[in-house]
Amino acid sequence: MKTLKYTGLLLCLPFLQACGPKPKAVTSNINNDTIPVQVMALQQQNASAPITVSGKFTTDDEVMLSFKTGGIISTVNVSEGDAVKRGQLLATLNPTDINAQLQQAQLANEKAERDYQRVQNLYKDSVATLEQLQNGKTAMQQARQQLNMAAFNQQYSQIRAPKDGYILKKLANVRQQVTAGTAVLQTNGAGAGKWMLRVSISDHEWAMLQVNDEASIETTALPGQTLQGKVTRRSEGVDAATGTFSADITITANKPQAIAAGMFGKAIISVKHDKVKGSQTWQIPYEALLDGDGANGYVFVTDDNKTARKLKVSVAGIEKNTVTISGGLAGARSLIISGSAYLTDNSPIIVQPSKTAAK
């Protein structure tokens, strides 16, 4: 009988435990609205860091020379590489056609003057009308302009050097027929010594350098010699062929004697952005920029690693993996680089270690 009582008691134990007080559940310290993010420290770029660039020498005054009228080339007095002086005769057209046109214009002008003089005398004798006198004067003026145009065309049936320089290319030969405006010779003004190095620059470099920044230039044609120059032009648009911006560095000191157009050179530009208002720049990952429109965008930063703050920034340049920011991040401590898509202004966050740090 006792055995039955103990067995019943044992069977009731599970029910008694189920009716008893439950243990407290372990609660998480992380709020369900808290968003995990990764951050990086913000550091301003050194505005005085030099920029190394490369390009080709040019004089920026290369000219394609052509004839005003078409015809057959009679003479070409120069070859590629020849030095020329301002006003020097370089090429001429066969003069037969243009001389005939000039003579016709001269004869037509002489006839118009005679006709006008005759009508003027008849008008004085009251034989010719005022209308006839005016028409005669107009015909004479038209003939005179035709003569001026023919004389002008004769003058430009020959090519003369516009300034001291060199022949870069000869594009046509003697006895070749050319139309008006067809390039015959290409020259430059290298005789004046106004050489410059035209270089390609990236978006980030474009944002950093300014006109009048000083530079030192070297070329393999002048081993051991350094040329001094300064930035005189910074393009305001991207070259469609190269996809980069360009800048001109004009040589100001130690001007070379042995430089040719198209020769390769390297330059180191000393950037002095600390003298330019709003010259602070930061390099941030491309993924951290939100709603970018080319000039502006938004990023999230945090100062206490607990709350995200949304900032509007100015975009100075976009490269393959990074973005150059020129304004809006002053005073910010850390940039949120992961998880930004889920954030709003003042969102609570929890900072997680980056994969690189975890390794």
Rank of each mutant, 00 (worst) to 15 (best):
N296D: 08
N296T: 15
N296L: 06
G297P: 04
Y298M: 07
V299E: 05
F300D: 01
V301L: 12
V301W: 06
V301A: 09
T302L: 02
T302K: 03
D303I: 05
D304Y: 11
D304F: 12
N305T: 05
N305H: 06
K306P: 00
T307G: 03
A308C: 11
R309C: 05
K310Q: 15
K310L: 13
K310A: 12
L311N: 04
L311F: 09
K312W: 10
K312H: 14
K312Y: 12
K312G: 12
V313T: 01
S314R: 10
S314W: 02
S314A: 12
V315E: 06
V315A: 04
A316R: 11
G317E: 10
I318A: 07
I318G: 02
E319D: 14
E319V: 06
E319H: 03
N321C: 03
T322M: 13
V323Q: 03
V323F: 05
T324P: 00
T324L: 15
T324F: 09
I325M: 03
I325D: 00
I325A: 00
I325C: 01
I325F: 04
S326I: 04
S326E: 04
S326L: 06
G327A: 14
G328M: 07
A330H: 09
A330T: 15
A330G: 11
A330R: 11
A332E: 15
A332W: 12
R333N: 13
R333P: 01
R333C: 03
R333H: 11
S334A: 07
S334F: 10
L335P: 00
L335A: 02
I336A: 01
I336E: 02
I337H: 05
S338W: 13
S338Y: 13
S338Q: 14
G339F: 09
G339R: 07
S340Q: 15
S340W: 01
A341G: 10
A341H: 14
Y342C: 02
Y342E: 11
T344A: 13
N346A: 13
N346K: 15
N346C: 04
I349Q: 01
V351E: 01
Q352I: 05
Q352Y: 03
S354Y: 08
K355S: 09
K355L: 13
K355Y: 10
T356N: 11
